[in-house]
Structure formats: C-alpha cells, structure tokens
C-alpha cells in the first residue's frame, strides 16, 4: 500500500518536476540556445562602449559584456548578434523581444526600472555628468555659468539633470539640443555653446580627440549627478536576469581574485576555494542557474576580467585614455564590488 502511494507520489513529482527542470533554464535561455546566438542591443556608435570598427567588428565595454553573457550561456563569446539601437527605440526593442539584453550605455533610474517592464542587472560603468568649458571663458566653477548656452544630447537623463542643477542653483541657461554627437561637438568647438554637458568620460575623450588644442579646454570640478550605466533585461524572466547579473559580478570577482584572461588556465589549479568555485573546478556554481559549472571560466576565457575589458576599450592605451577612478575595485577606493559566489 505504502509502496503504491510512494510510486504514485514519485510519478506525480516526476511529472511536476519535469516542467520545473525546464523552467530552470527559462524561456529566454531556451530561445537563445535554440537560436544559437545572443541578440544584444547596443548603441549606433559610442567610442569605448559600443563601436563598429572599420572592418565591421564591434568593440567596447558594452559589447564585451554581451560577449561574456554569450560565453556563459552558449560557450562561445563570438555567438552574439549586435543590433544597433537609437536612444528612442532602445526600450521598445527590449520590450518587444527584438533583443535579449540591452547593453547600450543606459543610465539606471528608478522610473525606468519600475515603469518599463525591464530590470537592470547591475552597474557596469559609474559615470557622472560634468561641464567642459573653454579656458578663455574664465570660469572656475559651474556656479559661474549663469546665462550660459549649454550643448547637450536630447532625451538623455543629462538633459533633465541640467534643468535640476541650474534650477537649484538659481541660474539661467539656454540648451542647444542635438542628437548626433558629430554635430553636437562641432557646435561646441565652434563656439556655438559656452558649455558642453555630458558624462565625464565622454568629455575627456572628446577633448582629447576633437579640440584643436586640448589644453584650451577644462572640465569643471562639479559632477552634477550620478550616472550609473548598466545592462537591462526583461523583468518577466528572473532566471535570465540572474545569469545576466552574475555574469557581470563574475567579471568583477575575477579581478578581485586576480584571475585574468592571460592566467585563467593556471588559476584553475589554484588551491584557493573561491577561485576554484568560480572557475568551476569545484562543482555547484552552474546548477542554480540551469547552466554547467564552467560558465564563469568561459566568461573569463572569452573576455577577461573587468580590468582586462577596461584596458582594452577605455584605458590609457586607447584613444580615450580614461583613468579608472570610481570604477576601481572597492578595496582600492572604487565602487566595484561583487557579492560572493557561493
């Protein structure tokens, strides 16, 4: 009698657990596996973040994140299809399932996170908006910018922050709002505006490459807002969101543990428990995600750790030449911090 009940119970459990086991991977991962590639929404061109090279190959921080995600799920960082999106269509493209993940220098805000049916999986780049001014304007602080004409891109949080900042300091301004960076920067360097407002990283890159004499321009000390950029996924698939979140964490954790693209094979022999777990030498990392244990190892092998990605795309050897600043590890004075893999 008991035996019969036990058998029925097992059968029921088996029937129930079958869909549960499938749901572990989730509909997005299933779709990605069936398709054989990850579809990643990127910008139409933003130096250091996502930029199509002269040979048509994409490069940048946002791009490498997608390669990492593809390596985690599909085992190959090259199995990504990049879809360039304008700033107007980026959320629509994610909502309509045109892309699996939006990795497009997008600022994380509460209204976007809560109101658009999307979930941000973490911060990949801590930025902040600043002002670039010509030195001959004689301005030392943003508080002296009363009446200034400000060049800014439309529809970004920059534009809203600009309004808030000038309002709270009781300053007047007139925006010059141009979507295309080519025309916007042309307008600023020609003297159409007194000030160029953008993310500090964009400003220093622009000053280095576009200013006739970079020393004639100065970035004012004030950062008017926080501008954390991060990838987003649809909120209806929690497991895919978890994979996306922990892929980002794996990049940071690898840097914390000193695992780089160059030494990842050696590190697999490391005696350190955390390293062994992250690289899948000890079992258990993959199961909760519905992936195999070696997924984080493949991520590092494909794109390296956070520092590798930074140096390749934004660091001192690149035309942008950015310093890490806030984007250092937490124990080096920055904001990057990975929750533990255990």
């Amino acid at each position: 009698m008991f035996e019969t009940v036990r058998r029925i119970g097992l059968a029921v459990a088996a029937t129930l657990s079958l869909p549960i086991a499938q749901a572990m991977a989730g509909p997005t991962v299933d779709a990605i596996k069936a398709r054989g590639e990850l579809v990643c929404g990127v910008s139409q061109g933003s130096a250091g973040l996502s930029l199509a090279g002269g040979n048509g190959r994409w490069a940048g921080l946002d791009v490498d994140y997608c390669r990492a995600l593809a390596a985690a799920i599909l085992g190959d960082g090259e199995k990504v299809r990049f879809t360039p999106l304008s700033s107007q269509q980026r959320f629509t493209a994610l909502q309509s399932k045109e892309v699996d993940v939006l990795s497009r220098n997008t600022t994380i805000t509460s209204s976007r996170d809560a109101g658009l049916g999307v979930t941000f999986v973490g911060t990949i780049f801590y930025d902040g908006q600043g002002f670039l001014v010509p030195k001959k304007l004689g301005v030392k602080s943003a508080k002296e910018l009363d009446g200034a004409q400000v060049c800014v891109q439309p529809g970004t949080v920059n534009e809203q922050n600009l309004v808030d900042y000038f309002k709270s300091n009781k300053l007047a301004f007139r925006p010059v709002v141009i979507e295309n960076l080519v025309e916007l920067e042309q307008a600023f360097y020609a003297g159409r505006c007194d000030v160029y407002l953008s993310d500090a990283s964009t400003l220093s890159a622009s000053r280095a490459a576009r200013a006739p004499k970079p020393d004639d321009f100065v970035i004012l000390p004030e950062r008017i807002t926080k501008s954390p950029l991060g990838p987003a996924v649809r909120q209806d698939d929690p497991n895919f969101a978890a994979i996306a979140r922990w892929t980002l964490n794996a990049l940071v954790a690898a840097e914390e543990l000193g695992i780089t693209q160059a030494n990842v094979e050696e590190q697999r022999k490391s005696p350190q428990a955390e390293t062994r777990r992250l690289l899948g030498v000890e079992p258990g990392l993959g199961k909760p995600f519905g992936l195999d244990d070696a997924w984080a190892y493949r991520v590092i092998r494909a794109v390296g750790n956070y520092a590798d990605i930074w140096n390749r795309n934004l660091g001192p050897q690149t035309p942008l030449g950015l310093a890490r600043e806030q984007n250092r590890l937490w124990n080096e004075g920055g904001l990057l911090y990975s929750p533990p893999f255990q």
């Binding site: 130096a47 930029l51 002269g54 360039p84 960076l181 080519v182 035309p319």
Partner: peptide
C-alpha cells in the same frame, strides 16, 4: 538602427579619432 550607407557612415564617425 539599420546600417545603410548613411547609417554606416555615421557609425564610422562615432569613432572619436575620425569624427
């Protein structure tokens, strides 16, 4: 977001060096 000739040209100009 379709890279036709003009779209590709603008993507090329997103490169700070050549802008």
């Amino acid at each position: 977001g379709v890279f036709d000739v003009l779209g590709a040209a603008k993507a090329a100009l997103a490169d700070t060096l050549w802008r």
